[in-house]
Design a protein around this nucleic acid. Structure first.
Lengths: 218, 218
DNA sequence: ATAATAATTTAGATTAATCTAAAAATAAAA
DNA sequence: TTTTATTTTTAGATTAATCTAAATTATTAT
């Protein structure tokens, strides 16, 4: 049996290591989970023992096949529940994360398959992140940060990096949504802010905003 | 903050004590939770400390106002989730209990209110048990065990005592469902079995079955 | 290449929830 | 009303997950 705590560690390693590809350091896990490095070390020993990670002292960890499968399932559940909350229960995209953090640990294969069906097999969550399929396979997109888009080129907004309520509410206010077409008009060198155009309106956004929005070139 | 374990104890005390009315013994809690009496004693001290129960050594426990409110919320969530699983996710009534045991601990007021709305404010779960309202108030029915219905009288099936899959599947097979009208035709003294009639068909059922079906006299 | 700094691990403690075995209180029976 | 049986509580241990502080290893800078 896997515990809730173990699941959270595995999910964190999966996400910090770009869906389980890269090796992850002890400290980065500790930061992400707001715990201490010594706690992470203890847990890595346990997860290695149970076959979820490959761990060598002082070398960081990466997920085993089993660990990757487990992580993908958790992320799949998290994102499907987010879609459910928005599509069926009238939640806004900035309200769903904390609840999905709880729901992702519910254990029932039938439940998640039926939820998938009820939602008509969605491919992305409300923040634009891809939903792993039943087999744990996940789309790897060629999305880039808006900040890295060249001047006078156009991109479609496909995701957010920061999913905090405060950031998402800001985007709502500025009428920036998934699917919006954004053109970079110019940049200010002294603070890296940029002027962008969405539809007919142009506006200035900070470096912070531009570094937390994903776009796909068009 | 209340822990998952504390919630399970509180819910158990609520249900063993007829929705928080009666005092409950240490051993009965231990039996219900499949744990040891000594563990229960420890937990009762903690719950008393936190104001959820009234506890005096060797005298059993009963729920405080706060405990009753907490318990009713958990039961409300459990039963709403059961309705959701049956109505929206194509579960059968014998499959929902264990999953609802997990879902009942999810914390979000908006979630449960929206779920209630999505399900169109159901009053009973798939086993016929009443769903507490937002305020923790719960319908007290005058249901009786089929076993206690007199010969040649009629009752409508309104609930089950045993919610195990094996019992519910048996009822499905015998075409006994919530809403079925049942007439007691006769009894056998030697094993307390009884012959009943549902619609046009009559059948014999054991004492065990008759003691796990709730009916309302008509 | 060595010293200084940063990252990681170990050792030892703590907390929540549990257990077993023994002691104490209550209830039932003689 | 004693004795016996049952129920409940206490005492002391255990496990999972965490922490602090000290020790160790790795990395960076001089």
């Amino acid at each position: 049996m896997i515990t809730l705590t173990e699941e959270n560690y595995i999910k964190t390693i999966y996400q910090l290591g770009k869906y389980g590809i890269q090796t992850v350091s002890t400290n980065s896990i500790a930061d992400a989970l707001e715990t201490k490095a010594s706690s992470v070390t203890d847990m890595m020993k346990k997860l290695a023992e149970k076959g979820y990670v490959n761990y060598k002292k002082y070398q960081g960890v990466n997920l085993s096949i089993k660990g990757k499968k487990t992580a993908a399932e958790i992320v799949r559940k998290h994102r499907l529940w987010e879609v459910f909350l928005v599509e069926k229960l009238n939640f806004f995209w900035d309200e769903v994360h904390e609840i999905a953090e709880q729901l992702e640990h519910i254990k029932s294969e039938k439940l998640i398959n039926e939820l998938d069906k009820l939602l008509d097999y969605p491919t992305h969550d409300p923040h634009g992140d891809p939903i792993p399929d039943k087999f744990g396979d996940i789309e790897k997109t060629d999305k880039i940060l808006l900040f890295n888009l060249e001047n006078n080129t156009k991109g479609v907004c496909v995701g957010v990096k920061d999913t905090s309520s405060i950031f998402l509410k800001y985007l709502d206010k500025q009428k920036i949504a998934l699917g919006s077409e954004i053109t970079i008009l110019s940049r200010e060198d002294f603070d890296d802010s940029m002027v962008i155009k969405i539809g007919d309106t142009s506006m200035s956004i900070s470096q912070t905003v531009a570094s937390n929005l994903f776009v796909k070139k068009v």
